[in-house]
Amino acid sequence: MAVSKEEVRHIALLARLHVEEEETQSLQRHLNGILEHFGRLKSLDLENVDPFAREDLDVTPWREDTVVPWDGREGALSQAPRREGDYFRVPRILENEDE
């Protein structure tokens, strides 16, 4: 199950990464290496192993429905790349996501 150059370009697009033509090749090798590693894991006999097994978990930890205000709001806004008053400001959004 090797990754094609096309797929590398598609994945880069989905991740909003600009990838030069020569980078495509090295990324392709890199991704294929990762897939190969998982391919080796696949060869293990896991017939009777629950895919979600978690030794430490019988019941999911959850919290009561109570409101706890957070006091770091100003810090979050002021450290954003751009803010406008009470809002985070973001660059122009392109409606058409294709290239």
Binding site: P61, A76, L77, D86
Partner: peptide, 30 residues
Amino acid sequence: ACSTDYIGAVPNTNVCPVCLGQPGSLPVIN
């Protein structure tokens, strides 16, 4: 644990590291 009462609220007041997607924060289900 942020409030869900957003109608008419001052923008970005009911927020915290979890719902702002800050690294290192962890979600816990209600």
